[in-house]
């Protein structure tokens, strides 16, 4: 498990220049816990699926009943705009943030909005290169964006195997996909698909009468409902969760490669509840929280102690595309403009 994730991480430096100093990591001390309890609450902005986010928050509240977690869930790109708006109006509402678009952390770090907060457990156990050595962000979760189909409506033999298969006329009007202007997962995936499969593919896909939804959590739900038999993109973790519930959906890992999405977390410098934020941040990287994110959240984890549930395709067997937040951050406007031109929304 460790080695695979390391391989996936080869490119994930998030713009940290190699020369930067190692930040001092922090431990969960009784003092931190006491200070956090005095604050009594924290505001957690995240782009993770709402139910999964609330599950994590409830698990933390069970561990620390004195601290209330206020979850604010939005698509990563919507969340990014919202934080930008709030900060330009000097509203410092968010304490700790998690985003499925790792490029956001490059921006926030550059703007000086993040506080260095490197949990000791991350420094000790997480693969080097996965987290910011200065401690401004670390990978709370990872997932992929996959193709998937409704197993009641599409026989396995006829299911698409590659992105290019989706251009077959037989899928015309039969696909759903999420939006890169809303979802960080999809923005990241769109960049990787444009780079590795080609923008001409996306242009042709736009001609296939694709139903356009917003969040990357929604296409699997549309597929299960039978609204469209195939999803062209969408996150893997909701597919896992729905499979566990017995829903008729199966993921396809395209032959061209599967977009890899890393979802880092960070603590805001202007957090109103800095101690509660740090406590939650550290807890979210613990084995307990990470195992929960994997089990009930369908995530992939960087924690070496996490056990993958049986039945999920191991990352080692998936040909992964490389996540490159630095490039995403540079090209975001161009990606969105192209997408708008092809897909009209």
């Amino acid at each position: 498990m460790k080695t695979i994730i390391l391989a996936a991480l080869a490119a994930l430096t998030l713009g940290a220049d190699g020369a930067s100093a190692q930040a001092p990591a922090y431990k969960v001390t009784p003092e931190l816990e006491a200070a956090a309890k005095r604050e009594g609450k924290l505001v957690y902005y995240t782009s993770i699926d709402l139910k999964v986010a609330e599950d994590l928050a409830k698990a933390f509240e069970r561990r620390y009943p004195e601290i209330k977690v206020h979850v604010e869930r939005n698509g990563a790109e919507r969340q990014f705009s919202k934080i930008g708006q709030e900060y330009s109006s000097r509203i410092f509402n968010v304490d700790t943030v998690n985003s499925s678009d790792a490029a956001h952390f490059i921006f926030w770090k550059r703007e000086g909005w993040l506080a260095p907060a490197l949990p000791e457990e991350v420094q000790r156990l997480y693969p080097a290169g996965s987290f910011d050595p200065e401690g401004f962000h670390a990978p709370m979760r990872a997932s992929t964006s996959v193709i998937a189909y409704n197993t009641n409506l599409v026989p396995a033999a006829e299911a698409p195997r590659s992105f290019r298969d989706l251009l077959d006329p037989k899928w015309r009007g039969k696909m759903v996909k999420a939006h890169p202007g809303y979802s960080g997962t999809i923005l990241t995936a769109t960049y990787q698909i444009g780079r590795d499969v080609g923008w001409d593919f996306l242009e042709k896909l736009a001609g296939q009468q694709v139903m356009q939804v917003q969040s990357s959590t929604e296409p699997p739900r549309k597929v299960i409902a039978g609204e469209r038999p195939v999803m062209a993109d969408g996150n893997e973790y909701v597919v896992f969760l729905e499979q566990a519930r017995g829903a008729p959906i199966a993921a396809v890992y395209p032959t061209e490669g599967t977009p890899m999405i890393i979802g880092p977390s960070g603590v805001m410098k202007n957090a109103r509840n800095p101690n509660a934020a740090r406590l939650f941040h550290a807890w979210s990287f613990s084995l307990e929280a990470q195992q929960l994110a994997v089990d009930v959240g369908g995530m992939r984890s960087f924690h070496p102690g996490v056990k993958e549930p049986a039945g999920r395709k191991p990352l080692s067997e998936i040909k992964l595309m490389k996540d490159d937040p630095v490039a995403v951050e540079k090209e975001v406007e161009q990606i969105k403009a192209r997408y708008l031109r092809f897909f009209k929304t």
Binding site: E77, R78, Q85, M211, Q212, V213, Q214, E333, T345
Partner: peptide, 21 residues
């Protein structure tokens, strides 16, 4: 309208506040 792949003025105005606004 968005799932059908078109915008109206109001949804367009809203999307113009996406980053970069």
């Amino acid at each position: 309208a968005i799932p059908a792949g078109f915008h109206t003025v109001t949804t367009k105005i809203y999307s113009l506040f996406q980053f970069p606004p």
